[in-house]
Design a protein around this nucleic acid. Sequence first.
DNA 1: CAGATGTACTACTACAGTCGTAGTAGATTA
DNA 2: TAATCTACTACGACTGTAGTAGTACATCTG
Lengths: 111, 111
Amino acid sequence: MISSDVIRGYNDTMILFLLLEEPSYGYEISRKIREISEGRYVIKETTLYSAFSRLEKNGYIESFYSDETTEKKRTYYRITREGLEYYREKCEEWYLTRSVIDLFVRDRKED
Amino acid sequence: MISSDVIRGYNDTMILFLLLEEPSYGYEISRKIREISEGRYVIKETTLYSAFSRLEKNGYIESFYSDETTEKKRTYYRITREGLEYYREKCEEWYLTRSVIDLFVRDRKED
DNA sequence: CAGATGTACTACTACAGTCGTAGTAGATTA
DNA sequence: TAATCTACTACGACTGTAGTAGTACATCTG
């Protein structure tokens, strides 16, 4: 399992990625991350909800309640225009970061 | 410029990578990181020195002073067996992490 | 029918790594 | 002689994540 200290800074990006597809809520996001990563990464609840509030505070996502009264009371989130913009920036940043770290991560001595 | 929150957790790995080549010291490590990354990443002094002390505390590097008395007083570091081990683990972790983040970083909607 | 499990959160505390700022001090270059 | 380079150390602050705990309702299982 991946230590989340490594993914730090990309939880927000993953959440936004999933919200691009459709509005969603905590538990579903969590489940999708686990599924997409095939269990390699499982986001902690605290991390997830603190990410939600941070993203909302920054205007990258908006919360709302489902119209259907039959449904369980839960908070849904949808991505905003600013959120999409931010997501794209993070993607660019990721390519750059990945290229830099790749330079330092390879075997040098074989002993 | 890359946000250092992203590389967080890989500063140690970069330092160890450079120490694999030869023992070195703060300023040189800093310079090499800047050079290798072609200026895309510049490690902060405070980050660097706190990484040194953390790595030494964990037994991944050892400090020593140069024999040459003519040389400027500076602390050198060399990587230990445990450091090499740790470096290898971080490399493996990186490949895994990279593969996971890659799944969430790609354009989904083109609007 | 009860109890376990799944869903959907909230609250609070703690910590590690990084940042910003500042300061020291000797060596080299202009 | 001043500016820049080298080689650090100290301190306080911030952010994101972790850990722990608790609430509450729904659904499945024996």
